[in-house]
Nucleic acid binder design. Structure first.
Length: 410
RNA sequence: GGAGGCGUCGCUUAGCUGGCCCAUAGCGGAGGAUUGCUAAUCCUCUGUGCAGGAAUGCACGCGUGAGUUCGAAUCUCACCGCCUCCGCCA
């Protein structure tokens, strides 16, 4: 959510920024209109209340009259305020000035790191490798749950724990507080982070029937949401968390895309970085998050490219977003494995997360970034580290956590 | 799930026989004054919104929402949360 004052003062640029992101910018005009009506009604209501407050004990009749008069105007104000709030939620966070205006195809490749390995044999994809090693079981996932769920077994499970341990230790050493978060969150936290309301047809997450609870799509929701309505001291910032959680994605509407294997699934585990930062420092910290993500892929020794998203691909909350795409030999393509966003004060304003600077409260900035999406990291490792017989060499940095060097064919 | 207690402006806290509350005090924080000494003392400010260039004014605010009333932090109801005890359980 943006500051209404900011929208009033920058009507043109906010409208443009909204269109740039692929949203309907005409909402800004509507907001300005409703805001004027809203403020007019606020003025009227307050004038009557002021009158009412000045009445003495002997002016009971006058009080009764004002009470009735007030009621109708207050009802109007309620309606207008609700409309206003709904509209305000429809304005996305404008992109940062350095972000290219455009659609998905305009995303910039900033750099490519590492050379895709030349294989002397026909490469297998991660699912074939998972079958050969007995580590990825899709049929039983479907059997016990539904298509899009799966089992990770044996050394595959150990590999995931190794990845988790590796990433958590790295982040802990860098000053992030390791956290295991709830895997569900209420609607306030979900919407506050800029995700779609559950009533919205575009929603991407599961809802628990009869409860004010959704299954989280990322630990970002629980890590950011935990500090709703909190005011921090400026010296407490930056506050860095590394959260481990299950992530649930509804993925409705993406039928037919990436159906093979565990690239696009309903449930996976992820370690997510979330930082609460001073506004003046958020850009710097965004680059730090990007660097940490790159460091992880460099240490895993997997070729990747760094993408800077164009405006049309940023979504609701992000003002700037970098993705890392890892090389997937079976597809001969780079595929997304991480994403880091600076959401500036967009989430903080919705959730009432503030910082006191020089005795004044300001909305702080929130940032998030994938440390490791464990499933996708596993895919990248399987494919890039595969051997001719279908066994998988374990990346050097993970070997100590697995106490072995190879995942053998079963 | 049962029984009882509680929920006040960052933290602690007064008020809770309805109008004397434009909500008290302490801590923490900000600004200033003064004194040269590893600090002390004093003063002012420190919930949100609306109008205004500003001084300021007005309104809202005592978990949330509704209600009673001319008037509610204070009374009623519902909901949420916390604590204690009991039950159940990894």
């Amino acid at each position: 959510m943006l500051d209404i004052q900011f929208i009033r003062d920058n009507k043109e640029s906010v409208t443009k920024a909204t269109f740039d992101k692929g949203f309907d910018g005409s909402v800004v005009d509507k907001i300005i209109e409703v805001d004027i009506e809203r403020r007019k009604l606020i003025g009227e209501v307050e004038a009557i209340r002021a009158k009412k407050n000045k009445l003495g004990r002997d002016q009971i009749e006058e009080g009764r009259a004002l009470k009735i008069e007030l009621k109708t105007i207050e009802e109007n104000l309620n309606i207008v305020t609700n409309t206003f709030n709904d509209l305000m939620l429809k304005v996305p966070n404008p992109s940062a000035p350095d972000v290219k205006v455009g659609k998905e195809e305009d995303n910039e490749v900033i750099k490519q790191v590492g050379k895709p390995k030349e294989f002397s044999f026909p490469v297998r994809d991660h699912l074939d490798l998972g079958l050969l090693t007995g580590t990825i079981d899709m049929p039983n996932g479907t059997k016990v749950a539904q298509s899009g769920f799966y089992y990770i077994k044996g050394d595959g499970a150990l590999l995931e724990f190794a990845l988790m341990q590796y990433a958590m230790m790295k982040l802990a050493k860098k000053g992030f507080t390791p956290v295991i978060t709830p895997n569900v969150a209420n609607e306030k936290s979900v919407i506050g982070c800029g995700f779609q309301a559950r009533s919205d047809k575009e929603r991407q997450i599961y809802h628990i029937e009869g409860e004010d609870l959704d299954l989280i799509g990322t630990a970002e929701i629980t890590l950011v949401g935990q500090h709703a309505d909190t005011t921090f001291n400026e010296f407490d910032l930056p506050l860095k968390y590394a959260g481990y959680s299950y992530c649930y994605r509804y993925e409705k509407g993406s039928y037919g895309k990436d159906v093979r294997g565990i690239l696009r699934v309903h449930e996976f585990r992820k370690i997510e970085m979330v930082v609460f930062a001073l506004p003046s420092e958020s850009d710097k910290i965004h680059e730090e998050l990007r660097e940490i993500e790159e460091e992880i892929w460099q240490e895993l020794e997997i070729p990747y490219q760094l993408i800077k998203q164009a405006t049309g691909d940023l979504g609701n909350a992000a003002s700037r977003k970098y993705d890392i795409e890892a090389w997937m030999p079976s597809q001969a393509k780079y595929r997304e494995v991480t994403s880091t966003s600076n959401t500036t004060d967009f989430q903080a304003r919705r959730l009432g997360i503030k910082v006191k600077i020089k005795n004044e409260n300001h909305c702080l900035h929130t940032l998030n970034g994938t440390a490791l999406a464990l499933g996708r990291a596993m895919i990248a490792i399987y494919e890039n580290y595969q051997n001719e017989d279908g066994s998988i060499t374990i990346p050097q940095v993970l070997q100590k956590w697995m106490e072995k060097e190879v995942i053998p064919v079963k």
